[in-house]
Amino acid sequence: MAEIRSLADVKKIKLDANRQLYSANEQEILDGYTTDIYFVRTIDILDSMGIADKIVTAEIFARKPGVFAGIQEAFNVLKNKDLEIWALQEGESFNAKETVMRIIGPYREFAIYETILLGILASSCGWATAARECKEACQGKPFIVFGSRHVHPSVAPVMERAAVIGGASGASNVLAAKLLGIEASGTLPHASFLIAGDTLPVAIAYDKTMPVEHKRTVLIDTFKDEPEEAIRVARALGKNLYAIRLDTPSERGGVTPELVREVRARLDLEGFNYVKIFVSGGLYPEKIRALSEAGADAFGIGSYISGASAIDMTMDIKEVEGKPVAKRGRIPGRVENEKLIRFK
C-alpha cells in the first residue's frame, strides 16, 4: 500500500479478494483511500498547472455549537506532513462558525485528507456533544456509555472514546477503554440470568468470581417484580452488593421515576440504603433528569450518544501564498480564535 498522490495511484489499488470486512483499516485511512475522488483529481489538475505546492492556510469550522473531540486522530493523519497545525484541545466547547482547526503548508500535503479530517472531527464532536448533554442532565452523577451495539464495530471505540471526552464517567467497549487508559465498565446482561433460569444463583456466582475491588452491580428486572428481586439480591450479597440495575423494557413501560422511587424506598426499609440504583434503557437528557430526581444514582446511556448526528464541519482555503481569499459569501482571510493551540 502507498499514499494516493494521483488518479493513476487510485487505478493501481487492488483489494484482497479474501477481505472479510468493508471498513477501512488504519493504513487505508492514512494512505488516503477514504477520500473523495475529486480531491485526487484536483491535485492532478493543479500539478499540470504547476501550482499544487502553493502555500495555503486552510481553516475548519463547525456549523453548530459543540464539544471538540477527534483532534488526536486528525493530527496523526497529518503529523508526518510538512505542515503547521493549530486546533482546539479535546473537550473544549466551540460555537457555530468558530475556527476549530487551522492547517498551513503546501496544498498538496493535505489536499486528499480533507474528507478524512472532516469525517473524524464531525463524528467525534457529535458524539462528544451528546455526551456533554447527558453529563449536564446527570447533575454530577456518573454515567457509562453503552453505545457500541448501535454502530459499526469499526467506529465503536471512536464513539465511546469521544463520549468520555464529552463527559462520560466510563466506557463499556474494551478497545475504547484501552485507548483511554481506563478499565472497561459494565454489569451483566440478561442472557446470563436467562441461561441460568434465576437471577439469584448468577448474582451469587458473580459475587464469588469477581475481585474484591469490583463494584458488584446486579440486573434485577429479568424474572420478577423489580423491588422484590432487588431485596432478594441484596439479602444474598449483603454489603458486597454495590448497586442494582434497572433496565425494564419498553414493553413493560421502561424504567420510570415511580419505579425508581419504589425500589429506593423498599431497599431503605430493609436496611439496604447503601445499595445504589443504576438505570439504563433508552435514556435521554429529559428522562435522565427525571430519574435522577426520583433517586437514580448512576446511568448507562447508549443510543442517545451513539445515534447523535455528526456536527457538520467545513474546510475553507483562507489564504494563498499569504493573500487573503474566500469564495463568495465568506470573508477572506483567517478567522482568528485565541483558543487554538499549536500541535505542530
Rank of each mutant, 00 (worst) to 15 (best):
5 R>Y: 08
6 S>E: 05
7 L>G: 13
10 V>Q: 06
10 V>L: 13
12 K>G: 11
19 R>E: 12
24 A>H: 09
24 A>C: 12
26 E>A: 15
26 E>D: 15
30 L>A: 11
31 D>N: 15
34 T>S: 12
36 D>P: 08
37 I>M: 13
43 I>S: 04
45 I>V: 15
46 L>A: 06
49 M>T: 09
50 G>R: 06
50 G>K: 06
58 A>Y: 00
59 E>G: 01
62 A>E: 02
67 V>E: 02
67 V>P: 03
71 I>A: 03
72 Q>P: 07
72 Q>G: 11
75 F>G: 06
78 L>V: 08
81 K>T: 08
85 I>A: 00
86 W>S: 04
88 L>E: 00
100 V>F: 05
101 M>Q: 01
102 R>K: 12
106 P>T: 08
107 Y>W: 12
108 R>L: 08
110 F>L: 06
113 Y>F: 10
115 T>D: 10
116 I>V: 12
116 I>T: 07
117 L>T: 00
120 I>M: 06
123 S>H: 09
125 C>I: 05
126 G>Y: 00
128 A>W: 03
136 E>K: 06
136 E>A: 09
138 C>E: 02
141 K>I: 10
142 P>A: 09
142 P>Q: 05
145 V>A: 10
147 G>I: 00
148 S>P: 05
156 A>R: 03
161 R>F: 07
162 A>N: 01
162 A>R: 01
165 I>K: 00
165 I>N: 00
166 G>A: 11
166 G>V: 00
169 S>W: 03
170 G>D: 01
172 S>I: 04
174 V>S: 08
174 V>R: 10
178 K>F: 09
180 L>S: 05
185 S>N: 10
186 G>Y: 02
186 G>L: 01
187 T>R: 04
187 T>C: 12
188 L>E: 05
190 H>I: 13
191 A>Y: 14
193 F>V: 07
194 L>R: 13
196 A>M: 08
200 L>F: 08
202 V>M: 02
203 A>M: 06
206 Y>C: 06
207 D>C: 12
207 D>E: 15
211 P>G: 07
213 E>T: 09
215 K>P: 03
216 R>Y: 12
219 L>R: 01
219 L>Y: 02
222 T>K: 06
226 E>K: 10
227 P>T: 08
227 P>L: 04
228 E>S: 15
236 A>N: 08
238 G>I: 09
243 A>H: 04
244 I>D: 02
244 I>C: 05
245 R>H: 13
246 L>E: 04
253 G>S: 09
257 P>T: 09
257 P>Y: 05
258 E>K: 13
266 R>A: 02
271 G>H: 06
272 F>E: 01
274 Y>T: 11
281 G>A: 07
282 G>P: 04
282 G>N: 06
283 L>N: 00
290 A>D: 07
291 L>F: 03
296 A>L: 01
298 A>V: 03
298 A>T: 01
302 G>P: 02
303 S>H: 12
312 D>Y: 14
315 M>D: 10
318 K>N: 09
319 E>K: 09
320 V>N: 04
325 V>Y: 04
326 A>Y: 02
332 P>L: 13
335 V>W: 05
336 E>F: 09
340 L>T: 03
340 L>C: 06
